[in-house]
């Protein structure tokens, strides 16, 4: 018997050539099949939307307490951030409290609105009376389970913008001062978000950078300001879930009675 044998620099024997062509065809089919299977099993990541192609302009009263928010005449609150993983604190400070016109790229998810500005020029003082600030309403004490996210990615810049894969990116955003957000799933199946501050109401981004994107619990006071809900943390930070809480995480978030109450009634914080 003399089986044919392939040597790279000699002409390829006909039977081996046929075999190799067969293998190549099989491999190409395998590649396409794996691509289609993995590609068709991508998980949904919500309805966040970021339009980085067309800028929009809005007017309202700019407040920095502790995060820059534009309160519009129509009652909408719009969180401001800068392009990249940076906060808009610095550009907003000079205009704090006054009526302004802000231009930037819109980011939206559920009832949340955000504007991504470019630089100091994106905020211009605007003549006219600024809208009246909404009253701050204390809603009470809660204890919630959920995840700290960076609001910018979560609301639509990155999809998905939460979870472990996104943890390093979220940490970078929080180090850059992007407002931190606490995301819970309520007993009603909906997800709600809270802007997080320290107990004294100050900036919590940098402090939370190392605790972002983990299943955690947090307790604090919920207050409403316009259509946003704020969570003032009791202690300095959040506590990682362990044991059963961790195992069940994802099914029964924010199932506690108090949390459900706030979550249920504040339609505006829904994401």
């Amino acid at each position: 018997m003399n089986r044919s044998f392939f040597v790279g620099y000699l002409p390829i024997p006909a039977d081996i050539r046929k075999f190799v062509i067969g293998i190549i065809v099989v491999l190409v089919i395998v590649a396409a099949a794996v691509a289609v299977t993995v590609g068709s099993n991508q998980q949904a990541a919500g309805t966040g939307n970021w339009n980085p192609t067309a800028q929009v302009t809005m007017t309202g009263r700019l407040v920095v307490d502790p995060y820059p928010i534009l309160y519009r005449e129509d009652g909408k609150s719009v969180v401001l951030v800068v392009q990249g993983k940076r906060s808009a604190d610095e550009y907003s400070m000079p205009h704090a409290g006054v009526n302004v016109e802000v231009t930037g790229y819109s980011i939206k998810r559920g009832n949340w609105s955000m504007l991504e500005i470019v630089d100091a020029e994106s905020i211009q003082p605007k003549k006219g009376t600024a809208p009246v600030l909404p009253a701050v309403e204390q809603l009470g004490k809660v204890s919630l389970q959920g995840e700290v996210v960076d609001s910018k990615c979560f609301l639509g810049v990155m999809k998905p913008g939460e979870g472990k894969v996104h943890r390093a990116c979220a940490a970078l955003c929080l180090l850059g001062g992007i407002p931190p957000m606490f995301v819970v799933k309520s007993a009603d199946g909906n997800r709600y978000g809270y802007v997080m501050t320290r107990k004294d109401g100050s900036h919590a981004s940098r402090m939370l950078a190392s605790m972002v994107a983990w299943p955690v619990s947090v307790s604090g006071m919920v207050e409403s300001r316009g259509d946003l809900l704020y969570l003032r943390m009791d202690s300095e930070g959040v506590t990682p879930l362990v044991g059963n809480d961790l195992l069940q995480f994802g099914d029964s978030l924010a199932a506690s009675a108090v949390a459900g109450e706030f979550c249920g009634v504040r339609r505006s914080a829904k994401i």
Binding site: A31, A35, S40
Partner: peptide, 26 residues
């Protein structure tokens, strides 16, 4: 490289057809 291009194309096309519009991933 034909195989690689086919892989990337199949992956991108299928995933962006199945999750489109508001649901689209980055």
């Amino acid at each position: 490289w034909g195989g690689i291009a086919l892989y990337i194309a199949c992956f991108m096309i299928v995933s962006s057809i199945l999750l489109a519009g508001d649901e689209a991933l980055s």
